[in-house]
Amino acid sequence: MVEAVGDRKWAFLNIDYTVDFVDAQGALTCGEPGIALHDAMAEVTEKTIENGVFTVFGIDLHLKDDQYHPETKLFPPHNIKGTSGRDLYGKLEAIYQENRDKENVYYMDKTRYSAFAGTDLELKLRERGIDTVLIAGVCTNICVLHTAIDAYNRGINIVIAEDLVASFNPQGHDYALTHLKNTLNATIVK
């Protein structure tokens, strides 16, 4: 995976790998495709942190009964502030808690599909001289794709870890990977 990045300065973006999006009982779960990523996601996240790579947890945040958020009409309530559904799934929560005070670990709330929309992510990347993002998480065709589109529009190189992204929609997942490669010039790696 790192070979695909080459000598570029890169960050690891861990998008929405939370209980609500991954656990079989999650409010808006990917189910088995998301669960299947767990061991690899934990391993890669730990290694990036250990190796000093800027590791971002871009996590969806919603307020209970927010009638003004556009997703309210599209999806059931999920990743509600103060609920366990926002916890990182499986070992990821412990990995984050053990490393949360490290300079290269950054947890950020996001309220839209893209981790760039309404956040300081671009600023955090630019101040570190980062020109490439390795994106992993869920859902491939929603938050991962929209984050990648915004990275592309900001001139940031995109690498997608194919075995670290999943969706509840297999056709959407496949379309997103094709779009990422053919339209956004993303490097797709395993």
Rank of each mutant, 00 (worst) to 15 (best):
residue 97 Q to V: 12
residue 131 D to W: 05
residue 82 G to H: 00
residue 111 T to Y: 11
residue 118 G to S: 09
residue 147 T to S: 14
residue 88 L to Y: 12
residue 150 D to S: 13
residue 103 E to G: 01
residue 127 E to C: 02
residue 12 F to P: 00
residue 21 F to Y: 14
residue 144 V to K: 04
residue 15 I to H: 09
residue 1 M to D: 08
residue 105 V to A: 02
residue 92 L to C: 07
residue 52 G to C: 15
residue 115 A to S: 14
residue 150 D to Y: 11
residue 91 K to G: 05
residue 52 G to I: 13
residue 1 M to T: 05
residue 109 D to N: 15
residue 153 N to C: 06
residue 15 I to C: 13
residue 111 T to R: 14
residue 74 L to P: 01
residue 144 V to Y: 11
residue 27 A to K: 14
residue 83 T to I: 07
residue 40 A to R: 11
residue 163 D to Q: 09
residue 9 K to E: 02
residue 122 E to R: 07
residue 177 L to G: 01
residue 162 E to A: 15
residue 57 F to S: 08
residue 170 P to R: 03
residue 40 A to Q: 06
residue 167 S to Q: 06
residue 26 G to C: 11
residue 117 A to Q: 14
residue 7 D to G: 14
residue 77 P to S: 10
residue 154 R to G: 03
residue 39 D to C: 01
residue 120 D to F: 08
residue 73 K to W: 03
residue 158 I to R: 11
residue 95 I to G: 04
residue 183 T to Y: 12
residue 146 H to T: 07
residue 176 A to L: 06
residue 173 H to T: 03
residue 32 E to P: 09
residue 40 A to C: 03
residue 62 H to I: 07
residue 176 A to H: 04
residue 123 L to Y: 13
residue 178 T to R: 15
residue 179 H to W: 04
residue 24 A to P: 11
residue 140 T to H: 02
residue 180 L to G: 11
residue 23 D to S: 15
residue 77 P to V: 08
residue 178 T to H: 12
residue 128 R to V: 01
residue 131 D to P: 04
residue 152 Y to A: 15
residue 179 H to G: 01
residue 112 R to E: 11
residue 190 K to Q: 12
residue 59 I to V: 14
residue 66 D to L: 03
residue 32 E to A: 13
residue 85 G to N: 02
residue 27 A to D: 04
residue 6 G to C: 04
residue 164 L to A: 15
residue 173 H to L: 03
residue 141 N to H: 13
residue 88 L to M: 10
residue 79 N to I: 04
residue 40 A to M: 07
residue 107 Y to S: 03
residue 87 D to P: 00
residue 154 R to N: 07
residue 55 T to I: 07
residue 43 E to T: 09
residue 45 T to L: 08
residue 51 N to D: 11
residue 183 T to S: 12
residue 116 F to H: 05
residue 123 L to F: 13
residue 135 I to F: 00
residue 137 G to Q: 03
residue 74 L to D: 09
residue 116 F to L: 06
residue 161 A to T: 01
residue 189 V to I: 13
residue 40 A to N: 10
residue 180 L to D: 06
residue 36 A to L: 09
residue 170 P to N: 08
residue 36 A to G: 02
residue 31 G to E: 06
residue 166 A to D: 07
residue 143 C to T: 10
residue 142 I to V: 08
